[in-house]
């Protein structure tokens, strides 16, 4: 599902990724670790094409984001490390609906997806709340609902458990398991790989710009 061949990424004169090779098949869950600044987020950003590799090739289901951005981005959901950076609408429900609306789905389908996604993350009562007044944890859930509502086949999570309490972590693990059961591919960048020991099928470590 995800394929990276010899991906090199340079940012501001620094080589962040130095020949990354990665293959993740559909239905797999990989945990990506690495020191702060090792390039975990940059690696995730290259998959939907937010960053273009200096050399090498990235593919999602055989399609490169440089060739067909819409196709790749409608398949890939990325939860950013700072989730509020994903918000574009005023209220929680409107923001969660933003992505599915962009896919051109019927209104009824969009509404169903919004309900289901908010229900999965435990924000069913937060429809009309402003995204700007959410707490850190709630903002993470709202952003995740926006990702899930697009029904991505590839889910990229950047430090998804940061700031979550024990109940929140359980809920997150349950969501990951459901996504895996649906045959989706997950890649989780984290400093706490033990949280995902039960659901991850692969451990990746990024150091000196390469996967070990």
């Amino acid at each position: 599902m995800i394929r990276m061949d010899g991906v090199v990424l340079e940012r501001e004169g620094r080589r962040v990724l130095d020949g990354v090779d990665l293959v993740l098949t559909a239905g797999s869950c990989a945990v990506l670790t690495g020191a702060n600044g090792a390039g975990k987020s940059s690696l995730l950003w290259t998959i939907p094409g937010l960053l273009s590799p200096t050399a090498g090739r990235v593919e999602v289901d055989g399609v490169s984001p440089q060739e067909d951005r819409f196709a790749v981005r409608s398949m890939v959901g990325l939860l950013l490390q700072h989730p509020p950076d994903l918000f574009v609408e005023e209220t929680v429900a409107a923001d969660v609906a933003f992505g599915p609306e962009n896919l051109g789905l019927d209104r009824a389908v969009v509404d169903r997806r919004v309900e289901a996604a908010l229900d999965r993350v435990g924000l069913s009562d937060a429809h009309s709340e402003s995204v700007r007044t959410l707490s850190g944890g709630q903002a993470r859930w709202a952003a995740l609902a926006g990702v899930l509502a697009m029904h991505p086949q590839v889910v990229l999570l950047d430090e998804p458990a940061a700031g979550l309490d024990t109940t929140g972590r359980d809920r997150l693990r349950s969501i990951i398991s459901t996504e895996l059961a649906a045959g989706n591919t997950l890649l989780i960048a984290t400093h706490t790989p033990e949280l995902y020991a039960g659901c991850s099928t692969e451990q990746l470590h990024l150091a000196d710009g390469a996967l070990r």
Binding site: R73, V88, E101, N102, G104
Partner: peptide
Amino acid sequence: EVLIRALLLRCLSWRPTSS
């Protein structure tokens, strides 16, 4: 930049589902 990134990730469309 953050807003543009969010719009790209979330597939900003000229013809979204009509309300």
